[in-house]
């Protein structure tokens, strides 16, 4: 399983990188940590003419926390996320989810930007971005633009990005300190892709009713999903047993996962409800700060 032939450049600026992608005319690929894309090449499922390595481009590896939220550079690695103690308060859902990403060695090289661009519906980061209404900054031959996570994911391993566009950062909007949240996923083994997963948060009003409910689902569709019907069940309601059961049923009903060698479609559909139910219980029981 040797890699196919390709050219390699590691430019020192975004402009140069974009120019190389333009010159590649669709067959050149940017590469960040390479932890998903190198295996794709090893199986010869992709044979790019050139890899444009982003490693030498300055400024892509920072985590900034501002009033607007958490801005994460595309080259920030999983371990940087897990090592950044500030995130536990600034965006607790993120490290909780990233703790499920692959394994120790992969987390030393895999990046946030790479995962978003890879757009695997079974991966954690795309669903977190979608759930949190994240906005990505992207540069390409037509200049810089912002892309909502909701507009990014088009299908399995497919995004709306042009072939000469590079993700530079992602902004996860600010997180109120008393927000309730949970992350639940179930995989066959530690670090495996999830059979299903749930990322959620909601805010509570003075009466204790939930609003601004955001529920994202992993691995039950061609893209990361928001579970609008389950959200609708919960918005404006107190998260009690009845609400949880109703939301779980709605979640199972609104997803249409496919079966594969690891789990049947029927199982995945049910698992979404089970995980949502557990996530909601966890969120409701978690002591507010």
């Amino acid at each position: 399983m040797k890699l196919p032939h390709f050219e390699y450049e590691a430019p020192a600026s975004l402009d140069e990188a974009v120019a190389l992608l333009v010159a590649g005319d669709g067959s050149a690929r940017p590469i960040a940590g390479g932890q998903s894309f190198v295996p794709v090449m090893a199986f010869r499922l992709a044979e790019p003419s050139m890899l444009v390595d982003l490693r030498n481009i300055p400024g892509l590896d920072k985590i900034e926390i501002t009033d607007a939220g958490v801005r994460i550079g595309a080259m920030v690695r999983w371990r940087d996320v897990l090592d950044d103690a500030r995130l536990v308060e600034a965006l607790p859902l993120l490290p909780a989810a990233i703790d499920h990403v692959a394994h120790y060695q992969i987390r030393n090289r895999g990046t946030v930007g790479g995962s978003l661009a890879h757009a695997d519906p079974a991966a954690e980061m795309p669903t977190i971005a979608l759930t949190c209404d994240a906005v990505l900054e992207v540069v390409g031959s037509k200049g810089q633009r912002s892309v909502k996570a909701a507009d990014l994911f088009m299908g399995p391993l497919m995004t709306s990005l042009e072939s000469d566009e590079i993700i530079t950062s992602v902004l996860l909007p600010a997180w109120p300190a008393d927000r309730r949240w949970a992350f639940q996923e179930f995989a066959r083994r530690r670090g495996d892709f999830a059979l299903a997963g749930i990322a959620l948060f909601y805010d509570e009003d003075a009466s204790g009713a939930a609003h601004n409910v955001h529920i994202g689902a992993i691995s039950v569709g061609d893209t990361p999903l928001r579970l609008a019907k389950a959200e609708a069940v919960l918005n404006g309601r107190k998260i009690d047993e009845a609400a949880i059961a109703e939301a779980a049923a709605a979640a199972s009903a609104e997803v249409d996962p496919s079966g594969d060698i690891h789990a049947s479609a029927r199982y995945r559909k049910s698992l979404v409800g089970t995980l949502l139910s557990r996530a909601l219980q966890g969120a409701a029981n978690r002591k507010a700060k």
Partner: peptide, 11 residues
């Protein structure tokens, strides 16, 4: 610690 099969020698 990294997986050396997922890293290019040029990297």
């Amino acid at each position: 610690a990294v997986r050396s099969c997922l890293m290019l020698a040029v990297q």
